[in-house]
């Protein structure tokens, strides 16, 4: 087993009501240390009220080479947007 500390991804909720957002990554021996280090590295100026850490190896990311098949199908589905539908001008709020 490698003695190098593994890499962790850090997610921080800036304040209640907002989602956790990816802030960056760091190395730590375990989850406890990752949380403590994340506190010191990413929230020195009240940037957060809650931290998630997850070991980077557990994240599966989509491959940008597949972006065509993954994301292009949504591009021609204009009927998913409200502006696709015609309604009389008299109707103001809909």
């Amino acid at each position: 087993m490698s003695k190098n500390w593994p890499l962790w991804e850090v997610f921080v909720r800036s304040k209640n009501g907002l989602e956790h957002r990816h802030f960056g990554s760091l190395h730590a021996a375990d989850a406890e240390m990752a949380l403590e280090n994340a506190r010191d590295v990413y929230t020195r100026r009240n940037e957060g009220v809650s931290i998630w850490v997850v070991e980077s190896k557990h994240i599966r990311a989509s491959n940008p080479e597949n972006n065509g098949e993954l994301f292009e199908p949504a591009q021609d589905k204009v009927y998913r947007h409200p502006t696709f539908y015609n309604i009389p001008d008299e109707i103001k709020h809909m």
């Binding site: 190098n4 890499l7 960056g24 990554s25 760091l26 010191d40 590295v41 020195r44």
Partner: peptide
């Protein structure tokens, strides 16, 4: 102290950014 701690933080942000290019911290 706070300033020097910030510089440590800067180093860590940048090492992390660098590691995304496929080189290890070691």
């Amino acid at each position: 102290l706070a300033k020097v701690q910030d510089e440590a933080g800067h180093g860590l942000y940048l090492y992390s950014a660098c590691e995304t290019l496929g080189i290890s911290r070691d």
